[in-house]
Amino acid sequence: MPEKSASNLVAEPQSPPKIRSPKRPAGTLYRGNEGMWSWVLHRITGVSIYFFLLVHILDTALVRVSPDAYNIVIDSYKTPLMGLAEIGLVAAIGFHAINGLRIILIDFWAFGAKHQRTLFWVVIGIWLVLLAGFIPRQLMHVFGG
């Protein structure tokens, strides 16, 4: 039997299999998926919050200078433009906080590592609920009477 199958192989040379090139890079387990984007967003929000924190420590330190100095600077936080920027700040803090908890679940819990993609969308869901609660409230405070 082996002889026969060997002769079959010689008699019918197989054409090389056709490999189609993907329309876009196939990516890896990580690249281009939830894991990468959660990492990118965690960095961007982290750096943004860090620079706000530097400014925020300095502006709060003005309470040690005088009531007037503090009030003048903190009034700039109450303008419509800054009111909208604060929504961005809370959005950044909210994502960084909830995704940070996701990172901890992935690091310490096998379930978390296995379901990290699902957990990313859970993070986005909780984040949207948080913003749905905060944004109307903030708009009332800044633009309300």
Partner: peptide, 20 residues
Amino acid sequence: LLVNMFLGEGVKAIDFAFVG
């Protein structure tokens, strides 16, 4: 954030007396 930005008057209530 809850105490300073959400409850009461939110950011509008923050001044020296509030921090004091």
